[in-house]
């Protein structure tokens, strides 16, 4: 049975021969593991992250890797053209992706990307925001939640200060950005459900 994996990290190419589930997963793993390792490297460079217990570092990364990658890959979603460019370079229209069974999740990903893009974040703002996505004290199973919370508050203060410095006349920009955090949680849940159904299928 041939399958498609409508994920920007998939090596899916246009007009290629039908591939088995095993082939699709093997292709996917070539980009998946390096992407996760990059997220871990990013986390290690967040000041204070390595002071957390190792179990909390793992818990935060396990819970937040998808959300970090979603932020990182948001620019692959072409909101105007309603298309998604995969890391392989191939570009797919929304209807093509919907035909692969990615309707609701994909639409929500486009909505998120559009909202994030509208904030015109600088690289520095995006970096602190991404750190904040990862360092969330309310993830379940934290060993030392207060230490994570301290780091989270430090990041929130740093982000707020930077955004106010960069946009002193737009006080809503910081609030709008923080509102993207629950959006990411929702996308994370939807993605987990999708992944589960893919495996079950």
């Amino acid at each position: 049975r041939s399958v498609h994996l409508a994920c920007p990290m998939s090596a899916l190419s246009r007009g290629g021969p039908p591939r088995s589930v095993q082939e699709v997963w093997e292709d996917f793993s070539l980009s998946f593991t390096p992407a996760v390792r990059e997220v871990v490297e990013f986390a290690r460079h967040i000041p204070g992250f390595q002071d957390l217990t190792q179990q909390d570092q793992v818990t935060l990364l396990k819970a937040g890797t998808f959300e970090v990658l979603m932020v990182r890959f948001a620019s692959l979603f072409d909101v105007r053209e309603r298309s998604l460019r995969f890391l392989s370079g191939a570009s797919y229209s929304l209807p093509e992706l919907q035909a692969m069974g990615m309707g609701e999740l994909l639409g929500s990903m486009f909505d998120f990307s559009e909202k994030l893009a509208s904030l015109n974040l600088s690289q520095e703002e995006l970096g602190i925001f991404t750190a904040l996505v990862l360092v969330s004290a309310d993830r379940s199973g934290m060993e030392n939640a207060s230490l994570v919370e301290q780091l989270q508050e430090t990041l929130i203060r740093a982000l707020r200060s930077l955004i106010l410095k960069n946009s002193p006349n737009d006080i809503s920009r910081f609030t709008k950005l923080l509102l993207r955090l629950p959006d990411l949680r929702t996308l994370n849940s939807m993605h987990s459900e999708k992944l589960l159904s893919f495996r079950v299928d």
């Binding site: 996917f28 998946f32 593991t33 996760v36 871990v40 490297e41 570092q57 396990k62 998808f66």
Partner: peptide, 27 residues
């Protein structure tokens, strides 16, 4: 999440990356 090529799950990949144990061998 899982890496079918190496039979590693997301948590294993994270733990290995955190410990730097990916560094001593090629992917």
């Amino acid at each position: 999440f899982a890496d079918p090529a190496s039979n590693l799950g997301l948590e294993d990949i994270i733990r290995k990356a955190l410990m730097g144990s990916f560094d001593d061998k090629p992917d």
